[in-house]
Design a protein around this nucleic acid. Structure first.
Lengths: 164, 164
DNA sequence: ACGTATTATATAACTTGTTATACAATTTGT
DNA sequence: ACAAATTGTATAACAAGTTATATAATACGT
């Protein structure tokens, strides 16, 4: 057995570690989605959930809601459009904006998912995170809000002792 | 302002959320690496650290040490080879194995990084994670070890009440 | 000892994110 | 009112992971 260097290095490799856990969770979530025979990728689901929750949104708003960049959002939206789950129409007041909304097929998929797929995923992930030594979601929120306040590169420039 | 759907959905989108935090951290770490003018990607660093710590390793051992798949490791190793930081030699006992080791240039980079770059990154990330409401690294370890025990798809198949 | 199974690495095609940039529509300043 | 700046979306090139599969070397069973 080889040492898990990313784990051993701790804070130094936290980015790699978050990412690999995220990738693993997304892949495993995909397995659950497939159990239900839903022909969708796990990365596409948050877009449907966002529109379901907030009504038609523009590309930029969706990117913001899902927390990825606009070009990434553009691509996923066009995939969902190809699959027939959403359609887009240019806004009348501002023709630069494209409003993305659920088609009837998309509505049906969301309703089915809310009833069966999402609860199943949520139960699996809750069980995975059950009895962790701390409130994991709160900590993620704290990390993200700290990163929004100041990028990592502005932190820890000097040893703690030297500060102020 | 648009609601952060990934945050709002909590456990349901934990995979996306871990992944986006990881990507953000890796991108920010890259900025710090660039401050030092080191011509390397943040994803390549763990490979150098693994060899530094454990001596020459095969491609497969490196993949395991870093926690990614073998094809991913193969690619990063050949990048490091192109950059002149590592070289490979087929093992004499088993000619399928390729042993990856640091070149003098790689050794120099690792020594410089251990002295200046890695402590800087570690301080930044520690500060970021300072005073979180829980031991974040321990929780990540717990999540990873639970995932290694049983994939997500085997969890939460029934409501808690129905279990046994 | 020789055919078959296994193991280690390489390669191809894909996924899901990124940054940089182009282009069209709107807004702003004079 | 119109030139310049800004904003919203699209596109291209890239990064870093994935799965599936090929190929070569080794190990195993009869």
């Amino acid at each position: 057995m080889v040492e898990d260097i990313v784990k051993s290095l701790g804070f130094l490799c936290l980015g790699s570690r978050f990412r690999r856990i995220g990738e693993r969770l997304q892949a495993d979530t995909q397995r659950i989605i497939e159990e239900f025979g839903v022909p969708i990728q796990s990365a596409q689901y948050p877009f449907l959930a966002a529109i379901d929750r907030a009504g038609p949104l523009t590309t930029g708003q969706l990117a913001q809601a899902v927390g990825i960049t606009q070009p990434g959002a553009t691509r996923i939206i066009s995939q969902l459009q190809e699959l027939g789950y959403v359609d887009m129409q240019t806004s009348v007041e501002d023709q630069r904006r494209k409003l993305v909304s659920l088609t009837p097929k998309g509505r049906e998929l969301v309703d089915f998912s809310k009833r069966l797929v999402w609860p199943r995923i949520e139960r699996a992930v809750s069980e995975l995170c059950d009895d962790l030594p701390g409130p994991i979601l709160e900590q993620l929120t704290a990390i993200e809000s700290r990163l929004a306040d100041a990028p990592l590169a502005n932190r820890g420039k000097f040893d703690k002792e030297q500060k102020s």
